[in-house]
C-alpha cells in the first residue's frame, strides 16, 4: 500500500459517501444517472468475485464490502424507494448502457492476462469501469444545472482513478516486473474521459460561478 493508492481509495470512498448522503438526506437523486450506478454495481460485482476466495487484508475486504453495499443500495434507492424514485429523471437518462457492457465483455474475452473465468470477469470490470461514467456525463450535459453534490460526486470519482495512475507509476518504479498494460490503459482512458468535466469544474470553481457544461 502506498500513499497514492490510499488517497485513491479514500477519494473513491468519499465519492460514494457524497452520493449516498445526497440521496439519503434530501431523498432526491435528481441529476444522478441510474445507468451509471447500475454499471458500477456490475463493475464491483465482477471485480470482487474473489472476496470469498482470497483474503488480502481487513482493509481490502472491508472496502470491497462498502463499495458493493453502497453501489447496490444506491441502485435500490433509485429504483424502488418510493420518494427517491420519483426524483429520477428517466427521460433524460437515456444512454443505452447495455451497449457498453457487451463490447467490454467481448474485449475482455479477447484481451486479458489469463484466460480463466475470474480473470476474464475481472478484466471485464476494468474495461466497464473505464466507460461507466459516460451515462452520467451525458446526463450532466443535458440537465446542465449541476447541483454541488452531483458535481462533487463526479469530481471525486474522476480523481480516484487519477491517484491510482500515480500509484501504478510508483509501483512500477519500486516493484520489479510490475507491468500491467491492460490496467494502465483502462485507467488512463477512464481518467481522460473526465478531462473536460475537470476543466469546466475548475473553471466554475475558479470564477466562483455555477458549474455549467456546454451543451
Amino acid at each position: 500500500m502506498n500513499i497514492f493508492r490510499l488517497a485513491g481509495d479514500m477519494t473513491h470512498l468519499a465519492s460514494v459517501l457524497v452520493l449516498l448522503l445526497k440521496i439519503h438526506t434530501i431523498k432526491s437523486c435528481a441529476g444522478v444517472s441510474l445507468k451509471t450506478q447500475e454499471l458500477y454495481a456490475i463493475v464491483f460485482a465482477t471485480r470482487y468475485l474473489d472476496i470469498f476466495t482470497s483474503f488480502y487484508s481487513i482493509y481490502n475486504t472491508l472496502m470491497k464490502l462498502i463499495f458493493l453495499g453502497s453501489s447496490f443500495s444506491i441502485v435500490w434507492y433509485m429504483r424502488y424507494h418510493k420518494t427517491v424514485r420519483r426524483t429520477y429523471d428517466r427521460e433524460q437518462d437515456t444512454f443505452r448502457h447495455w451497449f457498453l457492457v457487451l463490447p467490454c465483455l467481448l474485449l475482455a474475452l479477447l484481451i486479458h492476462e489469463k484466460f480463466t473465468f475470474l480473470e476474464v470477469l475481472w478484466t471485464f470490470s476494468l474495461y466497464l469501469e473505464a466507460v461507466a461514467i459516460l451515462p452520467q456525463l451525458v446526463l450532466l450535459q443535458r440537465t446542465r444545472n449541476i447541483d454541488n453534490l452531483t458535481g462533487q460526486y463526479v469530481f471525486l470519482l474522476g480523481g480516484y482513478r487519477g491517484f491510482y495512475i500515480l500509484n501504478w507509476i510508483y509501483r512500477y518504479l519500486t516493484e520489479p516486473h510490475f507491468v500491467h498494460w491492460i490496467t494502465w490503459i483502462a485507467g488512463l482512458v477512464q481518467t481522460l474521459l473526465y478531462a473536460d468535466f475537470f476543466y469546466y469544474y475548475f473553471q466554475s470553481w475558479k470564477n466562483n460561478k455555477k458549474l455549467q457544461l456546454p451543451a
Binding site: H12, S54, Y56, S57, N60, K64, E113, Y164, E175
Partner: peptide, 10 residues
C-alpha cells in the same frame, strides 16, 4: 504470483 499483486488493489 506477480499477477496477484494487482489483485490486492480495489
Amino acid at each position: 504470483c506477480l499477477q496477484e499483486s494487482l489483485k490486492d488493489e480495489l
